[in-house]
């Protein structure tokens, strides 16, 4: 019986399809990557609403306040109780003044946890009102399927 002679050359796989796919995956993730995660906070579970739609245009001067389930407020990197929020709001107002933006142009975005007590949210609004802010936006998560 005659045996086929084994080839001694190294068999190289064709890498082109794999590289094609990998580049497509990279392009996909690059397009979808979201660096603006400063607004989100892991601790806050927003309430759901079927009317929650993204705003058509960006707000003039948004200030995002996170209200946790326990009732503390997170503004940028600071976490304080509602009663101690005043200095932070004064700081924001001073920044606006330096930039020449009237305080009435600012919108306080309230990202409150869904289980927060309403009294806390109202207390937060009251503190902001006392410091000259008058526009508020209650943020909610889009409810899918209803």
């Amino acid at each position: 019986m005659r045996l086929a002679k084994k080839s001694s050359e190294i068999q190289e796989g064709d890498l082109t399809p794999m590289i094609d796919m990998t580049f497509q995956l990279i392009a996909f993730f690059m397009v979808l990557i979201n660096f603006s995660q400063n607004e989100a906070n892991e601790r806050i579970q927003l309430p759901q609403s079927e009317l929650a739609k993204p705003a058509e245009g960006p707000l003039d001067y948004p200030i995002t306040l996170h209200l946790t389930k326990e009732g503390s407020v997170i503004l940028s990197a600071d976490e304080v109780e509602i009663d101690a929020l005043r200095p932070l709001l004064v700081r924001e107002a001073n920044v606006m003044e330096l930039k020449g933006i009237p305080q009435s142009d600012a919108t306080i975005i309230i990202r409150a946890h869904k289980a927060t007590r309403t009294g806390k949210v109202q207390a937060l609004i009251k503190v902001c009102q006392d410091n000259g802010f008058e526009n508020f936006a209650l943020r909610a998560k889009e409810k899918k399927g209803f």
Partner: peptide, 15 residues
């Protein structure tokens, strides 16, 4: 990669 939920606002004007 993080899937971000769609969020929306209810505007309230309270001077």
């Amino acid at each position: 990669f993080k899937i971000v939920d769609v969020e929306g606002d209810f505007n309230i004007k309270m001077p």
